[in-house]
Structures are given as structure tokens and as C-alpha cells.
Nucleic acid binder design. Structure first.
Length: 445
RNA sequence: GGAUGGGUGGCCGAGCGGUUUAAGGCACCGGUCUUGAAAACCGGCGUGGGUGAAAGCUCACCGUGAGUUCGAAUCUCACCCCAUCCGCCA
């Protein structure tokens, strides 16, 4: 959410940001709607002030036994005007709120301009891709080992689901455990086991709502009082008050960040660092036909997520620190990767600046995203009403929030399979994972 | 699913139609005292908005939304949320 005062004083900042994101300018419209709302508000407030004044006088007259008829009549006249103006004010406020809530964050100044991912800036490459004779893709490796079952998963749940078995299921668990240990032990993150279903307000707070509700799964069970028709249409007016009651999280970023929803924290206690391994649920509505084979893009996958809550002064350094934590996972797994700075056309709705970490996948002969670390500045904090108070300061300020995958477990599994595959179809276990696999050296048929 | 109780400022908690301009306490900030601190005492202190150069003036907010009234934290209705007990259940 944007600071309306900032837009009012300096509309260029918003429009430049939108332009850099390849979106049309909106500041003029925002300023216009804001002016309209304030004009109505001022008019209404003058009327209410007069009403309050008269009511006070009436009370005084009645107590002292005077005649208040004349005053009562004047208030009655005012009363016919107030409701209409109140309605106007509500409509005007909703108009501007609706527009503001759909505008993305302004990219940081050091984010390069670009139309799409082709303009992303490669910052560094770590590790040399291993030479292989004929690299297989992860699904071939998994199916050959008979430990990855797409057919039965489709029977149960449809496309974009996978059944992992035996040592592959164990590998998935091992990866998550390993990542949690690194982040808690080496980087000071506090492990959290959060709810996987959240209220719509939380989804608004982190920026999924109202714009990206199509990508989310909602739940109704136990809440039959919500009419389905209303629930289905709620997104049309974007009013979260009539949204379905609980939503499956698309990432642990949602519950971890919303820990500070509607709160005021002490500056000295910052930064907060939270880590969680959770399932993530995504409708993948806009991704029809993309990555249909294998488990690259699923409706459900595990991810280890990092979230930091900081003061404005801390957030840039924290962003680098978080990215380092995510990179450390791949370094320890000895999986080649590169880190790119996303261009303005590729960063997410809530982000000011984002680093993507892409793991090398020999089977695809390409780098594929395995982590995304974003600094959201105060954008989410405004939506969440998440503030802090500096010691001795009367006023509150909005927090800064950051989130990053540390890393996506499902894709890490793919990366391990493809990078550690052997010509005979077996897969070596990365040495960092051996303790988590009971000392197992490799997975064979 | 059934029953009951409850949602008031950063926190606790009173208020149940008009000196409430939301009591009181805690926390916090400033001051007095003190070698320093604590205690005590004095003072300040909710959030968001409008207007203004500023001081200030002003509006809204007591879970949310309607309603009654000249006037609502207070009365009425609906809804949401929380807690406890029972039922069911991992």
C-alpha cells in the first residue's frame, strides 16, 4: 500500500515507479480521487461539528429547563443532509482504497529497468556445472527408480501433484530438515510452525489480495454460513469482508510476515528472523501449459521460507544477509547456481527489490529459479498496520518486511536428482545430506 | 454442532443515554529530590483523518455493519471474532 500523503506531495515518484514496471501512470487519478474524498469529508465534518454543537446546547437547555424547540428544528434540518454526504464519503473512500490496493510497490532505484526476465542482471555464478554424457530430467530419474509416481497422484488429485516414495520421500524430508538446521544454527532464525490456513486479511497484508486471489485456494468446510455465490463473486468487488473465511497459504511468507499484523513492536527487539518449512498451495491459474511434466510446478510443494522484520535502516543489509543464507544452502549441497537481480519488469507486486537464485539443472540444461529474496520496504507493513516505536519516540513508524525462499524444497530435490545422477541411473547423496539420510551414500534401484 | 461468557487506548481495566473532554492503574517520556539509581512526588502521554505557515481548531474511532435518538462506548437488530464447557475427532 502506498502512502497517500507521499503521492499527494510527490506524484512523480509513483508514476516513475509504475512506468519502470511498464504500467500506465496512476498518480493523477489517485490525486483526483483523494481531493474529491477530502472535499466531501471537509464538508461533512463541518456539518457534524455544527450538529455536535447544537446537541450540546440542547442538553444544556433541557437540564436548565429552557425551551430547545428552535435548536431541535435546526438539527432536524441538518439530519436530512448528513446521511447523503456520509454515503458520498464512503463511496469516494472506497474508490481510492480500491485503486491504491491494486498498485504495486515502487522498485528501488538500483533495480535495473527491463520488460521481462531477459533484462535481469546476473550478479554472480557459483560452482561449475558438471559435464555429463546424457543428463536426464528429474522425472525420468525418479520414475526409473520407481520412487516418483505421477500416475497415481493424478488419479487421486489431478494434474500437478506427485507421490514420492521411499528414499525420495526421505530425501525431501532430509532437505527440509537440513535447511532448517542451517538457518536456525548459522543464521539465527527462529523456527516457526505456523497455520497453513489464514484469514483473507492476512492475504491482503502480504499483497496476494485483492489482485491475485485467482492463484489461491480457499476453504469453506465448517463455514456453511457463507453463501457460495457471495464467496465466488467476492473478488469482483475485491471486498475481503465477504471473502471465504480461510485460505491455504501459497507460501509461509504469509503467516510468518503477518505475525506482526496490526501490532506495534519495540525497536530494540528488531530484527525478527523467522523460518518455517511448510507446504505451499498454488492454483497456478495463469500457468496453464507451463512446466506440465514433472514436479517443477505443482499445486502443492514444500518450501523453507525466511522472513525478516526490520527497521527501515536495517532492511537493505538484511536483504543481503538473507540472500547469503539462501545461497549457503546451495553451496553446502554443492549445487551450481547463479544469483540474478530482477529487473523492474520481473519483480513481484509487493517487492521493492528482488534477488533470484537459480540452480543449475543438467536435465534441462538451464538455470531454474529455486529461491527469490525480496525486500518489500514498508509496502506490506502499511497493509498490515505493522509498526514499531523507537525508544523515547512518541510516534510509530512502519516496519520493513523481507522474505526469501531458503530454499524451495521440491525444486531442491529436483536439483539434487539432476546434479547427482549417475550414468547407471543411481543418484549420489550430497555429503551435507548424508547425516540426514542415515549415512546413505546413494539411491539405487 | 450445542451451551455460556466476553470483545474499550501500547497493556490491564472502569464506564451501561448528556460535566466522558473515555475514570483509574501499568508501561513510556519530562521534571523535582539524589553522589548515581530506585522509591516518592509533579507534569505529560491513544490511533487515524481534515484544515492551517504555526499555535491551534475540528471530525471519526470503544469488534464490524445497520437502526432508535436532538445526542450512543452506553439502547435495539444482524454479523464477525475470542474464551470456557459439552459432543465429535487426530
Amino acid at each position: 500500500m502506498h502512502d497517500i500523503k507521499l503521492i499527494r506531495d510527490n506524484p512523480k515518484v509513483l508514476d516513475n515507479g509504475l512506468e519502470r514496471r511498464n504500467l500506465p501512470p496512476q498518480a493523477a487519478e489517485v490525486v483526483k480521487l483523494d481531493a474529491e474524498r477530502r472535499a466531501i469529508q471537509t464538508q461533512l465534518q463541518e456539518m457534524l461539528a455544527r450538529r455536535n454543537e447544537l446537541s450540546k446546547q440542547i442538553g444544556y437547555m433541557k437540564r436548565s429547563g429552557g425551551d430547545a424547540t428552535e435548536l431541535t428544528e435546526e438539527v432536524a434540518k441538518l439530519k436530512t443532509l448528513v446521511p447523503a454526504l456520509e454515503d458520498e464519503e464512503l463511496v469516494a473512500a472506497e474508490k481510492i482504497d480500491k485503486l491504491l490496493s491494486t498498485l504495486p510497490n515502487v522498485p528501488a532505484d538500483d533495480v535495473p529497468y527491463g520488460k521481462d526476465e531477459k533484462a535481469n542482471l546476473e550478479l554472480r555464478k557459483v560452482g561449475e556445472p558438471r559435464r555429463m554424457n546424457s543428463a536426464k530430467e528429474h522425472y525420468d530419474i525418479g520414475e526409473k527408480l520407481k520412487l516418483m509416481d505421477f500416475d497415481n497422484a493424478a488419479k487421486m488429485s489431478g494434474a500437478r501433484f506427485t507421490i514420492l516414495k521411499g528414499q525420495l520421500a526421505q530425501l525431501e524430508r532430509a532437505l527440509g530438515n537440513f535447511m532448517l538446521d542451517v538457518h536456525t544454527r548459522d543464521f539465527g532464525y527462529t523456527e516457526i510452525s505456523p497455520p497453513l490456513m489464514v484469514r483473507p486479511e492476512m492475504m491482503f497484508g502480504t499483497g496476494q489480495f485483492p489482485k491475485f486471489s485467482d492463484d489461491q485456494f480457499s476453504t469453506y468446510a465448517g463455514y456453511a454460513s457463507i453463501p457460495t455465490a457471495v464467496a465466488k463473486n467476492w473478488a469482483n468487488d475485491g471486498d475481503i469482508r465477504v471473502a471465504p473465511p480461510l485460505w491455504l497459504i501459497p507460501t509461509a511468507e504469509v503467516p510468518l510476515t503477518n505475525i506482526v499484523y496490526d501490532s506495534i513492536v519495540e525497536a530494540e527487539s528488531l530484527p525478527y528472523r523467522f523460518v518455517a518449512r511448510t507446504p505451499c498451495f498454488r492454483a497456478e491459474a495463469g500457468a496453464a501449459g507451463r512446466d506440465t511434466r514433472g514436479m517443477i510446478r505443482q499445486h502443492q510443494f514444500y518450501k523453507v521460507e525466511l522472513v525478516s522484520i526490520t527497521t527501515p535502516e536495517q532492511s537493505n543489509a538484511e536483504h543481503d544477509r538473507m540472500t547469503d543464507a539462501a545461497e549457503t544452502i546451495l553451496k553446502k549441497l554443492e549445487i551450481p547456481f547463479r544469483t540474478v537481480l530482477l529487473c523492474t519488469g520481473d519483480i513481484g507486486f509487493s517487492a521493492k527489490k528482488t534477488y533470484d537464485i537459480e540452480a543449475w539443472l543438467p536435465g534441462q540444461n538451464a538455470y531454474r529459479e529455486i529461491s527469490s529474496c525480496s525486500n518489500c520496504g514498508d509496502f506490506q507493513a502499511r497493509r498490515m498496520k505493522a509498526r514499531f516505536r523507537a525508544k523515547g519516540d512518541k510516534n510509530t513508524q512502519f516496519l520493513h518486511t523481507l522474505n526469501g525462499s531458503g530454499v524451495a524444497v521440491g525444486r531442491a530435490l529436483i536439483a539434487v536428482l539432476e546434479n547427482y545422477q549417475q550414468d547407471d541411473g543411481s543418484v549420489l547423496i550430497p555429503s551435507a545430506l548424508k547425516p540426514y539420510m542415515g549415512g546413505l551414500e546413494k539411491i539405487t534401484l
